[in-house]
Every structure is written in C-alpha cells, then in structure tokens.
Computed example of a mutant assay.
Amino acid sequence: MADSLQIHFEFFGDGLDPDEITAFTGVLPSSTRRKSSPNNTSSWSLSSENPSTEGSFTEAIEEFMRTLYPHVEKFRLVSERPGISCGLALWWTVDSDQEPRPAMRLGVEAIAFLGAVKASLDLDGYERL
C-alpha cells in the first residue's frame, strides 16, 4: 500500500462558534463540530482532501500550507480570542518494512505561519503491519 499523509488545521474550544469563524474568515471549513457534551469541544477545521499518496510528504505539506497563508491575519485574530486554541496536525502511515522512511519538512514560511496564529503542532506516525 502507498504511504499516506493527512493534514488538519483546526480551531477548537468550548466557546467556539464554527459558523461565526466561517463568516469572519470567509473560509469554508472541511468540517465543524459543536460542543454537545462535557466530553467534547467545538471545532472548525480544514483538512487535506485526500490522504497524500503521491509525491513527497514535504510537497503535500507545502501545498496545503499555501492555502492557509492568505488568511494568516484573520486566523491570527481568531486564535487570540479567549478560550480558542489552534493547531496543525500531520498524521502519516507507512509500511512497517519500508526503508527508507519518508521524510517531511516544514519550511520557514510554514513555521512563521504557525507562530503568527499561535498554533500547536501535532505529529503522529503509524506503521501499517
């Protein structure tokens, strides 16, 4: 099977209103969720359309990040609201016997974006047995 990479940029928090985030930023999310119990939180997220299976992980990350850059100022203002957090998640899966492992890199522009919007970075790798 091919390697896969899923990329998610998300705002989350108990007081977050996903519709208000969409209206303010002008960006349509891939998914939203409203808090419905004490065990979950509201969220607004953009995700890569399909897990990347061609090219390099670095190229897929750079392509996804280019869709975020034009919105940095509005995303920064959202992230500064009380009770709202922001994060970028990279989840990849590779075959357990694959050598060498695929590499990925975040460029200076991507790191500057994450700093500007005060986003955490979640990296999760999985092996397909």
Results as ranks from 00 to 15, higher is better:
I84S: 03
G115I: 05
S96K: 15
R76S: 13
S52I: 13
T67A: 03
I111N: 09
F57T: 06
P102W: 07
V72K: 00
K74Q: 09
M65Y: 00
P102D: 12
Q98Y: 10
T53Y: 07
R101T: 12
I61D: 02
K118E: 10
A103V: 12
F75R: 02
L88D: 10
W91Y: 10
A110R: 11
M104N: 07
I61F: 03
L77S: 05
L88Y: 11
R105K: 13
E62K: 00
A103P: 01
A116W: 01
E99A: 14
E109N: 12
V72H: 00
R66C: 04
V117I: 11
T58G: 04
S52E: 06
K74V: 03
I61P: 02
Q98N: 12
D97M: 14
V117Q: 00
R66L: 08
D95A: 13
T93Q: 13
C86K: 08
R81I: 08
R81H: 04
A89D: 12
A89V: 07
V117L: 02
I111W: 06
R76W: 06
V94W: 04
A119F: 02
I61W: 09
A112K: 11
T53E: 10
P82N: 09
Y69H: 04
L68D: 01
V94C: 09
E109Q: 13
A110E: 11
A60R: 02
I84Q: 00
G87W: 03
E73Q: 07
S85F: 05
V78I: 15
A89G: 08
